[in-house]
Design a protein around this nucleic acid. Structure first.
Lengths: 214, 214
DNA sequence: ATGTCTTTGTGAACGCGTGCACAAAGATGG
DNA sequence: CCATCTTTGTGCACGCGTTCACAAAGACAT
């Protein structure tokens, strides 16, 4: 029986082994003292808790470049997601297959949601179309929405929305990039740095504002 | 002079006003007591600190559906990012314009990076091509990489990598979706829930494991 | 000028999550 | 069957970030 210790896993993941054990203990006591965790069983338990063992039918609305990229994305199937349907407002797209799945017209949205028992919807439409599409999804029974459109969606209570802004990650990189450049300049110029900001010493991330994601 | 108080902003953002003031104080003392913050000046200061006032030339490598979607994404320009070049390994793509920018061949990668002073690269290639592309970007002087390919990239110290996994957000939604369903079932069935897990009471997010992003 | 009123900026307290450290549990060997 | 060794599971303490609460600062009216 192949096993792993919390120590090995912690080293591999770069975290503290005690924290890892505490997190695992949430799943129950699946480890064996003096031995470690049964790999296969552990993987199964984590998968189950995360919902990876379930089948999640999803619909993607808005089959532009991004919608097509999502439809083709291989990572979905392995994580329990099944693209139940692709939906687009353009009649010219209807019937055309993308990633092996025929695109259907927005008119049939409600029917598609209902027939496939879809509870998760992905919006990859232009900004203007997002809210109306969202409303129709919710009305049809969708309770979780992944929004790629650059708009804040308003939904009734009980519906989860997650907004993905592709430029936020770039912004985080640029922020760190700027700090790299800034530190070099300060190291060189010394007195050139304005005192106004009140730097309170260094540390790897000491002066990163709290509003900035790590 | 249009102003906002920390209280108004906090209410709009759904956070504590004291925290907001403390975060702002990182930028210096730009507020006026009894009045609030000068909107225009505040926006400028935040933009500057976040690096939004700088011009960040970026290259996108791998012009498939996702690369094209990124190239067309409107949110970049408004945040200080300028797509300096699109690069693809397919010779048939070379010269073809995507989002008004002609695609260039991978052979010229180093020259493009150098001539445009690019320090941020976006990888939207298939998994297999990601690491080699990454190596070449780094060798050419790129110090920040945004990786959309489903691979963990290894880079030398001093280079930042951020990995975007489009299915992670879906997984988070599915996790919450599962919990919704689970709670309903428990509420109905009562004793049907296994005691093994040791639920320690309720609370909106009380039993969400720490490993799960909020 | 002086007083009142609003809102900032921040010291101090609180609470929560992380990490330490150890007892309990089980394997393994003699 | 007992001793020893390894690794888990967790109580406890520490540290950090959030929040409270208030003094200081400035606007504005009289």
């Amino acid at each position: 029986m192949p096993t792993v210790s919390s120590e090995e896993l912690a080293a591999a993941a770069g975290v503290n082994s005690a924290k890892l054990r505490k997190d695992f203990s949430y799943l129950g006591s699946y480890g064996t003292r003096g031995v470690g965790y049964d790999v296969e069983y552990l993987v199964y338990q984590i998968s189950r808790e995360l919902g990876l063992t379930q089948d999640w039918p999803v619909v993607i609305v808005g089959i532009g470049n991004l919608g097509a990229a999502l439809a083709n994305y291989g990572g979905f199937a392995s994580r329990g997601f099944r693209v139940a349907a692709l939906i687009d407002a353009d009649p010219a797209m209807a019937g055309k297959p993308v990633a092996g799945i025929p695109v259907q017209h927005t008119d049939d949205l409600e029917k598609i949601i209902d027939e496939n028992g879809v509870s998760i919807g992905v919006i990859a439409t232009p900004a203007g179309a997002a809210q109306p599409v969202c409303d129709r999804l919710v009305a049809a029974g969708v309770t979780s929405i992944l929004n790629f459109a650059p708009t804040v969606l308003s939904v009734p209570d009980g519906v989860d929305v997650r907004k993905v802004d592709l430029s936020i990650e770039l912004q985080i990189l640029a922020f760190h990039e700027q700090r790299k450049a800034g530190e070099e300049a300060e190291a060189q110029a010394g007195a050139a740095a304005p005192a106004e900001r009140g730097d309170q010493g260094e540390g790897p991330d000491g002066d990163v504002p709290a509003v900035m994601p790590a």
